[in-house]
Amino acid sequence: MPRIDWLGYVVLVAAMAAIYINGSGYALTIGMTIMIWSMLAIGLNVPLGLTGYYHMGIGAFFGLGAYGAGFMAVRLGQPLIVPLLVMPVIGAVISAAIGPIILRIRGLHFATATLAIGMIASDVMNNWVAVTGGPLGLAGIVRPAPMVFGPVTIDLSQNSGFYLLGCALTLALLIWFAWFRTTAFALVLRGIKSDDLQTRAFGYSTMRYKVGAFAISGAIAAAVGVYYAFFIQYISPEPFSFAASSFQAFVILAVGGIGSLWGPVLGATLITVLPEVLDLQPQVRVMTYGAILLVVIVFLPRGLASFGAYLRRAGRAPAREKVQPAPLEQPAK
C-alpha cells in the first residue's frame, strides 16, 4: 500500500483554488500553462524518469495531439471530447509502432533518435500545408459551449471553466502516476533503468515494457496537446519546435526531479513563473533564468522535489560529521 503524500495534494489543490478565486485572465492563463507543462512532464517521466530513456522528442506527440485536435475542430467540426478521446489512442498507436524500432538503442543514441523524430515532425507541421495550414496554422478552434447539469453549469468556453478542466486532468494524471509508479509494471521499468539485461534474465520481455512506457508517454503528450489546442485556440508550428517543447519539457522534468511524483509540477511552476516575475532587462532576465537553472541543478541534483530531503540532510549534517552522506536512495517526493 503506497504511502499517500496528502500534504502535497492539499498544497496543490489550495494553490489551484487560489488561482481560481483570483480569477483574473492572467492568473488563469499562467495556471493553465503550468498545468500543461506539468502534464507533459509527467508524460515524459514515464520513459525518462522510470525507464531511463532520454526521450527528446515528446514535442512530436504533443504537436500530434494539438494538430489532431485542431484538424478535427476546424476542418471536421468535432467537439473537444472527440479529439480528447481519439488523439491519445493515436499517440499511443504511433508510439507503439515506432517504439520497437527505436527502443533497441539507448542513452544518447536514443536521445538523438527521438530528437530526429521531433525535428521531422516540426518539418511536417510546417510543410504539409493542406492539413496543418503550414506557418498559417489552424485558427478558429472553438471551446465547447456551456453544459448545464441541473444546478451545475460547466462553462468550458470561459477561461475559468477551462482552467477547472485542466485542474481535473492534472490531478487525475498525478494520482494516476502516483499509483502507476508502485505497480509491478513500473517496477519492471525501474529494473530496465538499472539493468536491462538482468531484467531480461529474470524472464521479462523488456522490449514490451519499454514500448508500453513509450506508448503511455505518447498518449499523455497527445492528450495534453488536445488540451493545449483548445486552451490557445490557434496552433502553428513554433510551439512544437524542439526548443519550445521537447527541450522545455526535459528541462522542467530535470529541474523538478526526474522520476519523482511532484517534480513535474514543481519544475513547471518554476520554469513558467520565473520569466514572469523576473522584472529585468530582457537579456539579463534570460541570463538570470539560466543561472537559476544552474544553481538548482548543481545544488539539487535530484531536482526541486528533493528540496525537503536536502534541507533535512543539511540540518542533520553537523551532528553526523564525516559519517556516510545520507542515502540518496529514498524516493524523492
Binding site: Q283, M287, Y289, L293
Partner: peptide, 26 residues
Amino acid sequence: VKDKSEIGQLMISMAIVVIVGAAAIQ
C-alpha cells in the same frame, strides 16, 4: 561536476548555453 549523472551534466551544459547565448546577444 564529475560526480553528477550524465543527465545532470547535460543540464548544466544546457544552462550554460542559455547564459552564454543571452550574454552574447546582450
